[in-house]
Design a protein around this nucleic acid. Structure first.
Length: 279
DNA sequence: AGCCAGGCCCATT
DNA sequence: AATGGGCATGGC
């Protein structure tokens, strides 16, 4: 146990927890730095701020249990990193990514955010997701929650387009409608295996192989997936000297190699490959 | 100014 | 099943 939980806070030892690195690692989009220098973040309808205090990080929130799960604080990361260390090619990424946790996020928020992420850049994704929240999310003392499906269903294609979603706007409308009118969310959550869940996700408009893998990883806590985007394709060619051209085949190669550690491995490699962009 | 961004849809083969 | 053109739009 590397944390202490209170009524409205969590105090976390910083040995295996680097919140800024985690927030900057491309898993989520609603976070920032306050004037005070503290970090803030929101997931679903939950909100927290984080500050460094006497050599610990303190997460201030009304929902400490939510964020213990969100930041995956009960998982033994040194053990995972030790297991991944058997592949020397990963070592620089493991060193650079120390303290990055795999986030357990709100499923609907992940689906919407990563449909927007396709062929897009992170600053723009953040803007679009924030505009969706301020226009359709419930107003809270700290800002705006991520909208419920019911609220999202009242947004039009024009709305999404005006938030900078581009050609993904109609995908969002269609997928929101499908999620609202079918039991696909329940079937995703109760899916017996990753293949079944992926197949369901691929039926959603705007969700292809890469976005499906991100949803499986960040929204459904499945770690035998390896999302391949432009950055990971660079890793595949540069560090692994791979020759497959299709990203689906590249992903299969990675999953066959890293198995149930694939999700962690992918996140560390992604964060490391982007170290010059992380600023 | 032109390339790039956590790719996907759809037609064609 | 696999491939390739087209695609909105802001960041750099």
């Amino acid at each position: 146990m590397n944390y202490v939980i209170g009524k409205d806070f969590i105090r976390v030892n910083l040995d295996t927890f680097d919140p800024l690195a985690t927030l900057n690692s491309g898993q989520m989009f609603r976070y920032g730095i306050l004037d005070s220098g503290d970090m803030w973040l929101s997931s679903g309808a939950n909100y927290a701020t984080i500050q460094k205090e006497n050599g610990d990080y303190v997460i201030h929130t009304q929902n400490p249990k939510y964020f213990v799960n969100f930041f995956d604080l009960d998982t033994n990361y040194p053990e995972i990193i030790k297991a991944l260390s058997q592949w020397p090619v990963l070592q620089p990424a493991l060193d650079y990514s120390r303290g990055v946790r795999m986030l357990k996020q709100d499923l609907i928020e992940v689906i919407i955010s990563f449909i927007i992420s396709a062929n897009n850049n992170i600053p723009r994704i953040k803007k679009a997701v924030d505009l969706i929240c301020t226009n359709f999310g419930e107003k809270c003392s700290w800002g705006y929650a991520f909208p419920s499906l019911t609220r999202l269903a009242s947004a039009t294609e024009k709305d999404f387009a005006s938030y900078g979603c581009g050609y993904r706007a109609p995908y969002l409308v269609e997928t929101i409608s499908a999620l609202k009118d079918t039991d696909i969310l329940d079937r995703l959550i109760s899916a017996p295996d990753t293949v079944t869940a992926r197949q369901l996700l691929l039926s959603l408009k705007g969700v292809g192989p890469k976005v499906a893998d991100c949803i499986l990883l960040f929204g459904l806590n499945r770690y035998d997936v390896f999302p391949v985007d432009t950055w990971i394709e660079k890793v595949y060619k540069d560090e692994f000297r791979g020759t497959e051209k299709s990203r689906v085949k590249q992903s299969k190669f990675f999953v066959e190699t890293f198995r149930d550690l694939s999700g962690y491995c992918q996140q560390y490699l992604f964060y490391y490959k982007r170290k010059d962009v992380n600023k």
